Amino acid sequence: MMKNVKLLSEVSIASLLTIGGIAAVNNVNSPVNPVASQTVQAATTEQTTIKLPAGYTRQRILAVNNNRISARDKQALVQASMNGMKQNTFYDNKASDKQEMVNTTNLTWAQKLEINRYALSLINSARAQMGKQPWVLNKSAMAFADRVATEYHNNNKSVWDPNHYVAGITRAAVASGLKNAGQVYEDEAGLPITSQFRGTYRTMYALKEQVYFNVKQMLFGGFYGTAAQYGLAGRYTEWEHAGDLLGLRSLKGYNAPTKMFGLSFSDMKNNHQRVSVHFMGVASRYVANRRVFNVNANIR
């Protein structure tokens, strides 16, 4: 599927987001989300949630994904998405995260598990508010995500390309015991490139902050830009990501009740600054070989 890539003037400092034909690029030369100063309820980052604002409704997400939304409802959805970007602020009270350096393309199992759980907690917090079943973290889905990352790296592909790397996703899917179903698995984003972290290394705190920003982008109109641009309506252009993460794409009931989830990161052979983020969701109907893809290998 072709992607409509929106490039800003400085692509070297960017965060890219793409799914099924949509992309957005964000220039980031300052922290993507300043840390909230107020006290919050969360005891750990794993309990962090993203709150869907008033006006951000199931009906509007379904309507916009099926080109059946009225101008009035579209305006209301854009406003709600603006509020979602403004009102949801990253918070991490795990002190060790600011000291722990991680290599996004070579995470330890403990680090991989932590960032996967973190990303999934954000997605599931939004799904719960829409009355949806949670996605589940699954070892086979995580292995699939790692295979996708390897395909991207080995073939020097990234989210900055105009298309998903479908050939690589397909090879990874088949090797993982999944159907050759083209690009039905991946939501793709890009980690912001900041003056502090220009390669694959960053603190766990920074990694969580950037993944938090990526998930916010996906939910709230594919926003592209910096915090200073949250109020610009023209920065909110698509809700396909939201429809996928929330199970609100189909008016005909084709949305999977839940998916098995895995997250991975890849850089490029010739550019270690461009780190792609692969959000992989697997519906059970796409599992071809259950001896290879273990649908029961869920991680709680």
Rank of each mutant, 00 (worst) to 15 (best):
D244F: 15
A126T: 04
W109Y: 15
K179Q: 10
T258G: 00
R68I: 06
Y185T: 02
L122D: 02
L17H: 14
T150F: 04
E46H: 07
S250V: 10
A24M: 09
E100V: 10
F144C: 03
K157V: 08
R147F: 05
S70Q: 01
T104L: 13
F261G: 05
V28E: 06
R171L: 06
N163T: 15
A54W: 03
Q41I: 13
G247N: 08
L263Q: 04
Y236I: 00
A189L: 07
L62G: 08
R274Q: 14
K139V: 10
Q79V: 00
S81M: 03
A297G: 05
N156C: 11
K259M: 15
V102G: 05
L207I: 02
Q59Y: 06
R291G: 15
N124E: 10
V35Y: 05
N154A: 14
Q38S: 13
N27W: 12
K157A: 09
V136H: 11
R198N: 08
T258M: 10
N116L: 07
R300P: 02
R58A: 07
I123V: 13
Q47C: 02
V136S: 11
P134M: 05
L263T: 11
V211G: 00
K208R: 14
T104C: 12
T237D: 11
A228H: 09
M2S: 15
P257V: 04
A42Q: 14
A80D: 01
N163H: 09
E100W: 08
K112H: 07
P34T: 09
S30D: 09
V25A: 14
S9E: 13
S30A: 15
K216C: 10
E46P: 01
L8E: 12
S195Y: 14
G247V: 03
T18M: 08
R202G: 03
G199S: 12
N93S: 12
T48E: 11
A173S: 09
G225C: 11
H278V: 00
D187A: 09
M2E: 14
P31K: 07
N106P: 04
